[in-house]
């Protein structure tokens, strides 16, 4: 099936908080093509993470529908990879046990699993750390374990919620470059939530700006920088500057609005 990997159609999210109804997402519609790298940016509380979690099937929507690879999302979506800012690597399992976890759930035989795990660790440059526990690794290495784990079972769509938010600036660039390489090699569809405009522009082919409460899509910017990109250098390109100006123009009033609340 060519065309939309994810189609979001008229999705609303309302919830009751402190005795009144809050509209977190107001009638959001969006098509994400196969192989696209889409970034969601917006002020905090605009519902961008909520929307991502809805695609993952973790949070139910109030109304509207989301189709993913031709299936309607109604429960936990097992056809995506999911990575958040929080450390989701299981601390009681070694690196290889963690990476092999989704394969274990799928009942893959041990020998085959071992081979796949080795491939994944090589892909994220973590060879030789198979037997280490997560506590023995740095934050960046743990992130790469999570990345290897997510790629191990080969989902075509990756949902990422500020995955590199907790990393320091240099490591963040390294991880971004690695992610771009993997995206290009493996032809994934990626939805990437971030509050970092520069990150969004450096990575994504399309950046979606959400407005503050109620969350709505306010603006969409196509990023014209050709791939393969060098995340260390993109920020000096003219296209980057143009995109940044456009996005900032749309985003800044929303952030100011959020501050007034």
């Amino acid at each position: 099936m060519a065309g939309a990997a994810i189609s979001i159609d008229g999705v609303d999210k309302r919830y009751i908080g402190r005795g009144r109804e809050v509209v977190a997402l107001d009638h959001v519609s969006l098509e994400i093509e196969e192989g696209e790298f889409v970034a969601f940016v917006g002020p905090s509380g605009c519902g961008k993470s909520t929307l991502l979690n809805m695609i993952a099937g973790i949070i139910p929507m109030t109304s509207g529908s989301i189709m993913h690879e031709g299936r309607k999302v109604t429960a936990i979506n097992r056809h995506v990879g999911y990575l958040t800012q929080a450390d989701s690597v299981l601390p009681w399992r070694t690196v290889e046990q963690n990476v092999g976890l989704p394969l274990e759930y799928r009942g893959m035989p041990a020998a085959q699993r071992q081979k796949r795990v080795a491939e994944m660790l090589a892909l994220v440059d973590l060879k030789g750390f198979d037997k280490a526990f997560p506590k023995e690794l740095s934050g960046g290495m743990r992130k790469r374990v999570a990345l290897a784990q997510m790629l191990a079972y080969g989902p075509d769509t990756l949902l990422m919620d500020e995955p590199f938010g907790a990393l320091d600036a240099q490591l963040k660039l390294v991880m971004q470059q690695q992610l771009l390489r993997i995206w290009q090699e493996q032809k994934k569809t990626i939805v990437f939530v971030t509050h970092d405009l520069a990150e969004a522009i450096a990575l994504a082919s399309r950046v979606i700006v959400f407005s503050g409460r109620p969350g709505k899509i306010k603006y969409v910017e196509e990023i014209k920088i050709p791939y393969p990109r060098d995340v260390f250098k993109v920020r000096f390109l003219r296209e980057f500057e143009t995109a940044y100006d456009n996005l900032w123009r749309e985003l800044s009033p929303e952030i100011a609005k959020g501050e007034d609340l």
């Binding site: 993952a56 936990i76 958040t84 399992r93 976890l101």
Partner: peptide
């Protein structure tokens, strides 16, 4: 709960979540 959601998305069954998380 992050561990539970993450493993469910990875394909864990109810028992899988119980056993591994």
């Amino acid at each position: 709960p992050i561990y539970i959601h993450a493993t469910q998305i990875m394909g864990a069954s109810q028992w899988g979540v119980m056993r591994t998380v």
